[in-house]
Every structure is written in structure tokens, then in C-alpha cells.
Write a protein that binds this DNA or RNA. Structure first.
Lengths: 146, 146
DNA sequence: TTCAGTTAGTAAACATGTTTAGTAATCTAC
DNA sequence: GTAGATTACTAAACATGTTTACTAACTGAA
């Protein structure tokens, strides 16, 4: 048995398949974000804050898949740009509560339409059933214990 | 119709679902790579070179999902570390041909077993059918024109 | 032949990813 | 109550991601 046969070709390798699929989806979204001078990470943060209200940084970290050191830096600029506010939690002074501002919400709402249109384009080509199936499988994979 | 209902919650948002799933799969692989002082990107490059033989940088870029500027830097250190060799193409002097060295191949082969074991763990938990189905759907998504 | 357009790669600047280390606050076992 | 562990976050260093700009080499049409 050769080493080659022990390995999946990269096209069937799970990590790179996930990466490539993501690149396909993100390409048009990145175009949209570039127009509004927002990075992909800031977009994810705004979406999490829009959905969850005022939350602490660790929560954003988990939900938006950003490590805390990255988040610290990104939130610093987002606060300076008036997209979010931060305040120390009164109960537990280690925690910082983060909230989206009206300005931040406005950026989000002005672009959700475009975001939705991109999703719809993908849905039209793959079919709603397959896309749902894919999302189910991704959730399941995410829950695997490794 | 509120803005909220126009948006998928982030848990059903395709880009972040792909990202989270990938984080799950990559976590143990990153552990492995840290032990051998190799980054995830270098690992992907070695795998592509192992699979495809001597190729030019643009090909690596496409296959390993790395932009050319990143690749330039990474290959520079990999060449210095003796994991790859580079030479100018004789037919088209713009092109650089990259090949894996024996040392590079050795790193790869020494760790393919661990890599395979991680994949097997996931396969055992999700089932082979679902995993195949997921890979099919990912390939299909990757082929969508956006 | 020539020159406008394209392609392959590099350089530089800045943002983010990732690891290690550190601080302050909180929790827990005793 | 207190010392040791844990938690939330920040700092710093270095690697990579991303964009823009650049050079060199190639292509193709007039």
C-alpha cells in the first residue's frame, strides 16, 4: 500500500474542500464589502451583534470564529469608527459588553439586500434542497468531537 | 417584513457555517502541525506538490487556495528550509517551477498517518455516507458561478 | 515588426491569524 | 477568609491575508 493511496487527493480532502467552497461563496461578498470599506471579519461581528444584542467579547469570538487577540484589535477600530460601543460589565469586571450602534446597524441594513441576493443566486443554482442538506451536514460536522 | 427575517441567522449562514465546520476539522490537524513546526499553509503546499509533481506557482496558488503574494513569501522560507526547490521555466521565463524535495516529502509522509487518523475519527462519528455526501455538495458549491 | 494587452511573479503596506505571555478579576476548595 | 486555579481580556511578535502597484516576459493583431 503506497503512501499515495493512504491519502485523499486534495480535491477530496475535507479541510481544503471546505476552504475552496468558502472562497466561492465569499468572493462576491468580499466585492460588496470592499465597496463599503468593511472587512469580512467586521461584517461577521456586526451580524453577530445585530442578532444577539449586547454581548461580551468571548461570545463574539465564538460566534464569529475570531480569536480574542484579533477581536481586541478589530473592536478597537470599530469603536473608533463608531460602529460599536464597549463598556465594562458591572457584575464581572473582567468582562466587556459590546453593542452595535445605530451607525453600525445602518451599514448592516444597507447591505443585507445584496448579501441576500448572493445567497439567492447560489440557491438558484444548487437548489434549495441541496443547500439545506449542506447546511445540515455542516452543522453536524461542526458538532463532531475531535 | 423585518430586516431580521430577511437574514439567515448566522448559524444558518453559509460562509460562517463553512468556517466553523473547517475550524472543527482543522483543530486537531493544527495540533499535529504545531508539533512539527509547520503551518497549515505549508502543509497544503507540500500536499499539492506531492500530488502534482513539479508545478508553477500559479497552480499551487489555485490548488492550495493561497494568493500569489502570500505564496511568494511562504515559498521563500520553504526553499530556505530545504522543503522545496524552485527554478525558472526555460520555455516561459515568467514562470517559476516548484518541486518538493526529499526532505519535504519526508515531513509529509511522516505525518500522513496522523492526518488519516483524524479523518477516520470524523468518518466514524458522521458516517462514511454523510461525509461523502458532504464532499459532493462542497464540490458542487465550489463549482457554482457567482 | 511593433506595440497594446495580458500573464507570472514580486514588493510594500496594512489588516488579520496565531501563539505566548501577561494582568486583573473571579471562583473554588480548604 | 485565603491561596491556587480559572477566566476575560490585552500586548507583543511573527506569519499570513489582501490590496495595490510594479517589473519582466509573453501574446496577438495590425
Amino acid at each position: 500500500m503506497t503512501q499515495e493511496s493512504q491519502t485523499k487527493s486534495t480535491s477530496r480532502a475535507l479541510p481544503i474542500a471546505l476552504l475552496r467552497a468558502r472562497e466561492t461563496v465569499m468572493a462576491p461578498i468580499r466585492d460588496m464589502l470592499q465597496d463599503i470599506h468593511l472587512t469580512e471579519q467586521k461584517w461577521r461581528i456586526l451580524r453577530v451583534l445585530h442578532e444577539m444584542g449586547e454581548v461580551e467579547q468571548s461570545t463574539i469570538s465564538k460566534e464569529a470564529c475570531l480569536l480574542l487577540p484579533s477581536l481586541t484589535r478589530i473592536l478597537r477600530t470599530m469603536e473608533a469608527d463608531g460602529q460599536i460601543t464597549r463598556r465594562q460589565d458591572t457584575d464581572d469586571k473582567r468582562r466587556t459588553k459590546v453593542k452595535i450602534t445605530d451607525a453600525g446597524r445602518q451599514i448592516l441594513e444597507a447591505n443585507l439586500g445584496t448579501s441576500l441576493a448572493i445567497y439567492t443566486t447560489i440557491e438558484e443554482q444548487m437548489g434549495q434542497d441541496k443547500l439545506d442538506q449542506l447546511l445540515d451536514l455542516l452543522e453536524e460536522l461542526q458538532a463532531v468531537k475531535v
